[in-house]
Amino acid sequence: MAIDPTHRGIYSAMDMDIREGGEIEAFYAGHQEPIADPIDWINAPPLPQNVLLTSVDKIINWSRRSSVWPVTFGLACCAIEMMCTAASRFDLARFGMEIFRASPRQADLMIVAGTLTWKMAPWLRRIYDQMPEPKWVLAMGACGTSGGIFKGSYSVLPGFNKVVPIDVYVPGCPPRPEALIKAVTDIHDKIEKMHPTRKAGE
């Protein structure tokens, strides 16, 4: 379609020039001072007081420690104490753990709370394998440590370490919420000692 050279817009050429000139004059009036050299920002008094120097490892470990998401894996009576720990009285959310995930692909901590039978063991291992690295496992209760009162039973595992690697054991039958919180802080300590930017063997 051909352009009609005689077509007039909303504004006349004179109005357009006046409008653009006004915008340029306003921009010019507000930009007379030069922007400071970045070296001046660094040497300014507020900046040195508000800058922290650290390593990449420290930042990564801090972010991991502050946002550990557990996968829900309550098997027996210890799960009641785990739920109590997540409730308002003990407030596990203080440690960035208020989100118990139903999907292992969104979790990095498995709290296995209760009695694990051989029939359930393959599913525990499957959920563990689906969790992304890095991941940690917390065995809660006497059953997780040694089989507890069911030790010697044909149907119960004598410890979760037969199926998955355990990072922290929480003794008790069942352990109190304070014991679980202490175990969570032990997991945090392990995370703080990691070196995520180094290759294995360095």
Rank of each mutant, 00 (worst) to 15 (best):
L53D: 10
S155V: 13
K199F: 08
I80S: 02
D40L: 05
C78W: 00
V137D: 03
T85G: 06
R65I: 12
V163M: 05
I60G: 07
V71Q: 10
W62R: 14
L138C: 15
T85S: 12
G147F: 02
I166Q: 02
C78H: 00
E178Q: 15
I99S: 05
F27G: 10
T185C: 13
R19C: 10
Q49S: 12
G148N: 08
D129L: 10
W136E: 00
Q49W: 08
G96W: 05
I3N: 09
S66K: 14
Q130W: 05
G172S: 10
P5F: 02
G172C: 09
S153M: 03
G96Q: 06
R105P: 07
R101S: 05
K58D: 14
A79V: 02
G96L: 02
P177N: 03
V68K: 04
S55Q: 09
P196V: 03
W123C: 10
F27A: 02
T72W: 00
F95C: 00
W123Y: 14
S66R: 13
R176F: 08
I18G: 04
A13C: 14
S67Y: 11
D189E: 15
I24T: 09
W123E: 13
L75D: 01
I60P: 04
I39F: 01
G141F: 02
E81P: 08
S146N: 14
Y11K: 13
S103L: 11
T117R: 03
L116T: 07
I59P: 03
Y154R: 00
P5A: 10
D186E: 15
T117C: 04
L109M: 08
L92V: 12
V184H: 03
S88D: 11
S67L: 13
C77P: 04
K135W: 10
G159K: 00
A102V: 12
P5L: 11
I99V: 13
A86P: 04
M83D: 02
M120I: 13
K199S: 12
D15P: 04
I59A: 12
K199G: 11
T54M: 10
I166C: 06
K58H: 14
I39K: 01
P177E: 09
K135G: 04
F90H: 14
T185R: 15
M14D: 11
R65Y: 06
L75M: 11
R105V: 06
S12G: 13
A93K: 10
S88R: 11
E23T: 03
Q32S: 09
I42E: 05
A121I: 06
W62S: 12
G201P: 10
S67V: 14
K135V: 07
A2F: 03
G148I: 04
F27S: 02
F100T: 05
M14T: 12
P132S: 05
M110I: 08
P171L: 06
S66H: 14
K193P: 03
M97R: 01
T197Y: 10
L138Y: 07
D40P: 01
R89P: 00
